[in-house]
Amino acid sequence: MLKITELQAKVGEKQILKGLSLEVKAGEVHAIMGPNGSGKSTLSYVLAGRDGYQITSGRVEYDGKDLLALSPEERAREGVFLAFQYPVEIPGVTNKYFLKAAYNALRKHRGEPEMDAGAFLRFVKEKAKSVEMDPAFLNRSVNEGFSGGEKKRNEILQMAVLEPRLALLDETDSGLDIDALKIVAQGINKLRDPRRAVVLVTHYQRLLDYIVPDFVHVLSGGRIVKSGGKELAFQLEKEGYGWIDAEKTAA
């Protein structure tokens, strides 16, 4: 489904991704772990299409298409979803209006008729319930005045509504208490399906107690330096990232 080959990306003059390769197949859950500054967020943003990153070489294929040639909205309509590490506040736009605009853009892209306001409201209320969100949040401005946990939960609500085929979650676990973490994990687990894939980008192993990944990759210095099964996450949790750097230096 997703095939990243030797990807290199710069921000300004600074090289962040230095030949990153990764393949994700439908039905799989991958966790990308790494220390701060290893390029985790850059990878997420590059895949979602944010401005300000210069791709200097490499390719990203998504469903056989050149993902990097698509605009952010085209990527979203093709089923790519990025749950933001820092969700953006948009005063004056209600959550439900935003969700409806996004959902109908998706339907239009698929050649389906737009859903009217009444039907959408019923649909989205059901989804809100599934992530244990008070429906009152639907009438509030997007993320405005939300706590950290509420913002993350709102990301999961958006994901539940848009039902992406490839979900990228950037540090979705950071700043969550244990109850919120469980709800978020539950939302992600509900999405697990043989036709979908999930990429969890995280600094800590904590989230992986609730979402068991098929593969764990270690990102360091802009490259995947080690890949393994879920046991790799436990090792990282116990021993930190130091031994990876030591291994790299030794190699």
Binding site: P72, E73, A76, P87, I90, F98, A101, A105, L162
Partner: peptide
């Protein structure tokens, strides 16, 4: 630009995202 990208990353087209944000500014 952050708000525009956030909207676009959810599938809302660039022109619609602009209109949505301008509208929100006035809606207050």
């Amino acid at each position: 630009p952050e708000s525009l990208f956030y909207l676009r990353s959810r599938g809302v087209g660039a022109a619609d995202a602009r209109r949505l944000l301008v509208y929100a500014f006035g809606a207050e």
